[in-house]
Amino acid sequence: MAAPQTTSPVTLHVNGVAHRRELDHRTTVLDALREHLGLTGAKKGCDHAQCGACTVLVDGRRANSCLLLAVAHDGAEITTVEGLADGDDLHPLQAAFLEHDGFQCGYCTPGQICSAVGMIAEAGEGAPSHVTPLAAGPPGVPVPLSPDEIRERMSGNLCRCGAYVNIVAAIGDVTR
């Protein structure tokens, strides 16, 4: 019997560019980005989806790229922090993180910013959170992003430097 195939051709559309690679099935989207495509913006913090440093947008929604197998995301549209700016014009969240000093070492920042992009879109579509009043709605109406809402919705992104106060301020600034 032939040995089972443990690699497959995978196409990932990253920041608008299609990349095709033969990848071991064990390769995560995070490792594909960092080790195979040279995009090191998304960071490997814990590698277990506990820290959020690897957060990217997959087909428009934020996800922990460390737990996504690349082979299972063949054909996916992925946006990393490298794809947010328009040339030299920073994405409003990138500018706000600079303005509000939303980091110290910066390791969690790409994940924080990608997560915030996804989070703002979710709230804009009316998606509730753990702290959204049940009476809120009707569905589809944007949920206002109070500091409590931002903290709850961003809880999957840790910052060991403790820049949370300025991260919340930066995100709040963009959503006002």
Binding site: G52, R62, G118, A127, S129, M154, S155
Partner: peptide, 29 residues
Amino acid sequence: LAAHPAVRARYPALSQAVLAGASGQIRNT
């Protein structure tokens, strides 16, 4: 599941339970 209008309106305990678990990124996946 947590954001579905019928779940929120008729089964609020289910929507609340899902939203009490994990993180936004994990719930998307």
